[in-house]
Each structure stands twice: as structure tokens, then as C-alpha cells.
């Protein structure tokens, strides 16, 4: 494999992400921002999937981050991104640290459904304690500040800030996946017996992965709250969790760029499908998922990999002749 190919592709993608908003209309910048914060939450879901751990409740962390912002704005008037992003990360982390104590004991369908259960408890609580949470009306968030300066209202500020955060998150996930814990996580999917007989605590591996995923969910929720400007209990609803899983599968969880690719296609597909087929867009999404699972279970990332592999081989063949 061409060693330069990977960083080059990443550079091209980064350059595109930086330049694209300058040439597209404002509403597309909004969608691109959504792509970014969605991909951050999906990265958490994807990391768990690497270990064979499917969650139908990751909106728990997304909503935790979003409501951490909501309460900060409502009670303390804090709008500062440099405070709220760490706060969202921390609240996601703390939530994951508590819920994860139980979750690290489970796998497969129990893991998936227990996560769902916890997210629905939060959803219920957000509805029920309406005098605190605003109930079904949710909470208005207002505009964020960065170092005390209000971000421009046209959406560029949120986009570039989200892009920077997404960059940091990608680096963190990359490091995690390259670490012993990351490899043991993949091994978990493969052979738990061997891990146990290596003297490594499988629960520790799951717990640490879960902490990472929860933290990313919290960060994603913060960015979502400001980008959308309004938070509602549905942020914790199972449909939101399902969306994360959908994007993870669409993009492919086998590679780092999968969540971003998945979120890109998902958001634009949803936008255009609901524009041109207002009554059938869910059906369109269903068909896309069907095609992915039937023909490309590795997701868009796998398609990209195959194309890249073929191009690489052609390039090498050219050098040889």
C-alpha cells in the first residue's frame, strides 16, 4: 500500500472541509455543521461497534451534553464555548462512568437494550421535570461566544469551531484505536477467551471504550445545542440513537473516516429526499440501508478503501512497467 496515500487523502478531505463553506450557500453550511456534530457522536457509536457492542441508546450522552449547555445558559448565563465544550464532555464522561459500571457487564442484545433503557429514562425525566427542563417545549440556547466574542450569526463560526473540535476528536479516537486498549477492543469482537487468558480485564476494556463514547456524545450534544439553537427531550429519544447507528453502518465503522462519510451522505440524503419525496423519504432511507447491508456491509468507508486499493495497485503497476 502506498504509505503516502492515507495522509494525502486526509489532507484533501481536510482542505475540502475548510474551503467548502466559502463557496456553498448558507443553508448548506448549516447542514455541514450538522454533519460534523453528528459524526462526533457517531464516532463514539462506531468505536463501540468495533468491539461488537451495539448501542440503541447513545442519545443519552448526546442529550446529556445538550442539556448541560441548556442549564448553563438558563441558570448561569454561560454561553462560552471554551467552557461549555469541556463541560459537555465532562457531563458525558460522568454519565458514562456511572452507567458504564452496569454496561461493562453486558454484551450483544442486552448491551443494546440496556443503553436504550437508560436513554429512555432520561427522555422521561426531561419530559416529567418540565419546571426544570422546559418539558416538551425544551430550552432555547441562544448564541454562543468564543473567548467572549459572539459568534457571527451566519453559521460560519459554528461550522469552523465544530470542524476544529471534530479534528481534535478524530485525533483522540485515532490514538485510542492504535493503543493496546483499542486493539483489545477489536479482539473482544474476535476472541474474548484469549483476552481473559492474557490477564487483561475485558470489563476494563469495555468500560474505557464506553467512557470515550459517552464523552464524544456529550461533546456532540454541546455543538448540536448551539447549532440548532434549541434543545428538546427528543434529543434523548431512541429515534435519535437509531440515527447514530444508521449513520455508523452507512459510513462503516471499520475505519476512522466512516462516521464523517456516513453523516455527509445521511444529512444530504435526508435533506434532498425529504425535499423531493416528502412522503417517502423514510422509505428512501430504508432502501439505502438495505442496499448497504446487502451489498456493502463495510459501509461507504469500505467502498472508498476498495477504490483506493485498486488505484494504488494501478499506480504501482505503472511504476513497474
Amino acid at each position: 500500500m502506498n504509505l503516502l496515500a492515507v495522509p494525502r487523502a486526509a489532507l484533501v478531505a481536510s482542505a475540502l472541509m475548510i474551503l467548502l463553506p466559502l463557496v456553498v450557500p448558507g443553508w448548506i453550511v448549516f447542514i455541514l455543521t450538522k454533519v460534523l456534530f453528528m459524526s462526533i457522536a457517531v464516532m463514539g457509536v462506531s468505536v463501540l461497534l468495533r468491539g461488537g457492542l451495539l448501542t440503541f441508546g447513545h442519545a443519552l450522552y448526546y442529550a446529556t451534553g445538550a442539556y448541560a449547555v441548556g442549564f448553563s445558559v438558563k441558570w448561569f448565563g454561560v454561553q462560552e464555548l471554551l467552557l461549555l465544550v469541556p463541560l459537555g464532555a465532562l457531563s458525558g464522561l460522568i454519565m458514562a462512568a456511572l452507567v458504564g459500571l452496569i454496561m461493562a457487564r453486558y454484551r450483544e442484545v442486552f448491551f443494546a437494550m440496556l443503553n436504550l433503557a437508560f436513554s429512555m429514562i432520561l427522555f422521561g425525566a426531561l419530559l416529567k421535570f418540565y419546571w426544570v427542563t422546559g418539558g416538551t417545549d425544551g430550552l432555547a440556547i441562544g448564541t454562543a461566544t468564543l473567548l467572549g466574542i459572539e459568534l457571527p450569526g451566519d453559521g460560519f463560526g459554528y461550522y469552523y469551531f465544530s470542524l476544529a473540535i471534530a479534528g481534535v476528536v478524530t485525533l483522540v479516537v485515532y490514538r485510542f484505536m492504535a493503543s493496546p486498549a483499542g486493539y483489545f477492543l477489536r479482539a473482544l469482537y474476535d476472541n474474548e477467551i484469549r483476552i481473559e487468558y492474557s490477564g487483561v480485564a475485558v470489563r476494563q476494556i469495555i468500560y474505557r471504550t464506553y467512557l470515550l463514547a459517552g464523552t464524544l456524545g456529550g461533546v456532540s450534544g454541546v455543538l448540536a445545542a448551539f447549532t440548532i439553537g434549541h434543545i428538546v427531550p427528543e434529543d434523548a429519544f431512541w429515534i435519535q440513537s437509531g440515527e447514530f447507528v444508521f449513520i455508523a453502518l452507512l459510513g462503516g465503522f471499520g475505519g476512522l473516516p466512516g462516521p464523517l462519510m456516513g453523516a455527509l451522505v445521511y444529512e444530504f440524503l435526508q435533506t434532498y429526499a425529504s425535499k423531493y419525496f416528502p412522503l417517502a423519504w423514510q422509505m428512501m432511507m430504508g432502501i439505502v440501508m438495505l442496499l448497504i447491508i446487502l451489498f456493502q456491509p463495510g459501509g461507504l468507508w469500505a467502498i472508498y478503501q476498495r477504490v483506493e486499493h485498486r488505484l494504488g495497485r494501478r499506480a504501482r503497476g505503472g511504476e513497474n512497467s
Binding site: A178, S179, P180, A181, A187, G199
Partner: peptide, 28 residues
Amino acid sequence: YTNMSVLEGMLLSLAATSGKGTGIWKPL
């Protein structure tokens, strides 16, 4: 670990025995 390379399996054993099997930041 059938989805990994032969060497990666060995590295995991070495990581485990050095007590760094759950490390999340330094590479394998």
C-alpha cells in the same frame, strides 16, 4: 485473534504482561 496480524496478537500479549493492556493513549 483471527482478524489481526500475527504480530499484533503477539504485541497484545506483550502489552498485557507489561500491565499496559488497557492503556488508551500510547500506541500498541
